[in-house]
Amino acid sequence: MIWLRSSLLPILTVVAAIFVLWYAGAVGLNSKWAYDKANRAGVTLSFSELVADTWSQEKPKLPGPHQVAAEIWKTTGAMVLRGKAFSKRSLIFHGWITLSATMLGFVLGTGFGILLAIGIVHNRAMDMSVMPWVIASQTIPILAIAPMVVVVMNSIGFSGLVPKSIISMYLSFFPVVVGMTKGLRSPDAMQMDQMRTWNASKWQTLIRLRLPSSMPYLFTSLKVGIAASLVGAIVGELPINQDGGLGARMLVGSYYSQTIQIWSALLTAAALAAVLVGIVGLVQGATLKRMGMAR
């Protein structure tokens, strides 16, 4: 178990440091409110009373990790136990809404991205006219258009899943196009010559050489793409919040200063991102290992 000592211990140390900073930050940020309360009540706070208060306020500036954890449990596990896993107040419900928009957009974006990349690799005119725009569009803050897309689509009768998925699709589309174009071009001159000596058709070269060679590039872009899809879905939920979703939870929380609710939605989103990227990573590991391409 050398791995435990050489990798896990440093990671745990850094994570522990983050928690210490978090608790210390909670004391610092919440102390003003604690002192105000004490002043009004005409009592003076000892240090331990101050700490206890800052870690247990109802609407703290920065809730402690245990408060967020309790809120997450209350809105997920506890509701499952009561058989209300999909009630409107449950984070599972909101998470599911965000996840379905993310997945729909991700699948569509990846599909279109791969198709466009195949076109770009096989057609010089397409390569030279589309590729500069694809690269340039990566420097443009696309996410900023997200609310507009949602509002406009709503006004022409598309609501719910579709507008958010379109944003997710758009965000996962570009990394896949760029990565796949690189990947489909990754076979070297010798491998392409070899296909030529066998008089292989373009289609045979694509299926037997280009696509398998592009797998490492594809998975790298998929990881970026799925994270971007999730961000897109969350931002897409900001302007219209009656449909629910993690983004809507954040916005509603910020309207009513429900900081614990914002943090719990945020951490749920983070966990969701981690799980999604982790799944892509696992599939990547298994596939590349089977293909003998793992490093």
Binding site: K61, A227, I234, M250, S254, S257, L266, A270
Partner: peptide, 17 residues
């Protein structure tokens, strides 16, 4: 790990602070 998270969600909190 953090770079892959939807950090943009921190926005409402930071606007409050």
């Amino acid at each position: 790990f953090v770079a892959a998270l939807p950090i943009i969600g921190m926005a409402p909190i930071l606007v409050m602070w």
